Simulated assay, not measured.
Amino acid sequence: MLKVTALIAALALSFNASAAEPVSLEGFSDAIHHWYNRTDKLDAPLHLQSDTRAIADNILLYQRNNGGWPENTHPQRVLSEAEKAEILAAKNQSDASFDNRNIYPQITYLSHAFQRSGDTQYRTAALAGLDFVLSAQYHNGGWPHSPDRPDRAYGDYITFADEVMPGVLSFLRQVQSGEFPFDYIPAHKRTEATQAIAKGDRLILQLQVKVDGAPSIWAGQYHEQTLQPVAARSYELPALQTWESVAVVEYLMSIPKPSSEVVSAVDHAVSWFRDNKIPGVRVEEFAIEPERFEYHTARIDRRLVKDASAPGLWARFYDLTTSEPFFTNRDGSRVEALQDVALERRSGYHWYGTWPSRLLTTDYPRWKATKVNAGGP
Rank of each mutant, 00 (worst) to 15 (best):
K210V: 03
A198F: 05
Q195M: 05
G220A: 12
V248P: 03
P215D: 10
E244S: 14
A231F: 01
Y222V: 14
T242P: 01
R233N: 04
I197W: 07
Q225V: 04
V246M: 13
G213Y: 07
A232K: 02
L205A: 13
E236Q: 11
Y222K: 15
V209I: 14
Q228C: 02
Q241T: 15
S245R: 11
T242N: 10
Y235E: 12
Q228V: 05
I197H: 08
P229Y: 01
P238S: 01
I217A: 08
L203W: 15
K210L: 10
L207M: 12
V248F: 07
A198C: 04
A214L: 08
S234P: 00
E224W: 06
A247W: 00
L227T: 02
V248L: 08
V249S: 10
Y235Q: 12
A247R: 07
T242A: 07
L252Y: 14
A231P: 04
Y222A: 15
Y251V: 13
A232N: 00
I204R: 14
A231H: 05
P229C: 04
G200K: 12
A231S: 04
Y222R: 10
D201I: 08
S234L: 05
L207S: 10
A193D: 03
S216P: 03
V230R: 06
Q221K: 05
T242L: 02
E250G: 05
W218M: 11
E250P: 04
